[in-house]
Amino acid sequence: MPAVSVRNLRKTFQTKRKAAGLRGALAALFRPAFQTLDAVRGISFDMEEGELLGFIGPNGAGKSTTIKILTGILHPTSGEASVLGRVPWRQRQELAFQIGSVFGQRPQLWYHLPAIDTFYLFGKIYELDEADLRRRIALLAEAFEIEQLLETPVRKLSLGQRMRCEVAASLLHKPRILLLDEPSIGLDVVAKQRLRATIQRMNEIEGVGVLLTSHDAGDIEALCKRVIIINDGEIVYRDKVSTLRRRYLTVKHVDVRYNEQLSPDFSLPGVEMLKVGRFGAKMRFDARVTPVEPVIGALAAAGGLADVTVSEPTLEEVIGAIYARAEAENE
């Protein structure tokens, strides 16, 4: 039996529509108009116990709404969902003892208190034995490298430090599933890597399943084996991350800067030039056709390098490619 099972889940919101300005405000006062917004449009998926499942999509795709339904925060408009054998919106409290959740935009640590105070409060909320709680805090503090941060008021922590404390707090009661909604939002590269590594370690040590939502494909690549991509409330892709990488994360973008002037007809074989300036250029290439190594070699040979950045396609570009491929296959 899957740990999470979702069938034809749908959630619509009613939102008020109002034209701009005073006239619009007056019209809305006497004849309010509403529009129905389909946040989630009949999605279905399963997640196995202990699995690291990526749930990605651009802003407004329906990721957070789905997570909120799975934690029991929201009631769906229709459809079914079961988390660890429970219907989240009917057995919310019971389920909350078995799952942990972290919402990047909604801290659970008390802002003016040191994290350790919230940890002890969580101990009471989850009815943990005092001695067990102490041992658990020590274990998590070591795993997340937060021993030195626990007694500092949360308001004085950096975003990365705070997020590590947030995830540690959500693991205090040894949940079987961790629902992480944009945990890396606003974090720098180093903080992101540190957080990813610790989540992976906790999955290995305790077998906690992780459903991770992000608009950053890098989070999923680093952590998950399987990925679901959602766009506009619908699932547009589901497969192994390795397949996603092989099919869609092959195009590399390169931004290069030189210490000396480039010739205006600067070009490299197998590489599409997007923009060539006096001291630098922007380009892209398909790593399946043109391997990375010769491109970097050719860039270095072209002059004295000042800076070079290689980046992967944005999620929007990946989704665009998925749609384009689906259309091509249909034709």
């Binding site: 925060i73 919310r92 909350a96 919402f103 909604r106 659970q108 909320i125």
Partner: peptide, 11 residues
């Protein structure tokens, strides 16, 4: 802001 309370196992 009720999200926080709804995600924890208390009334």
């Amino acid at each position: 802001q009720l999200d926080y309370y709804l995600s924890l196992p208390r009334p």
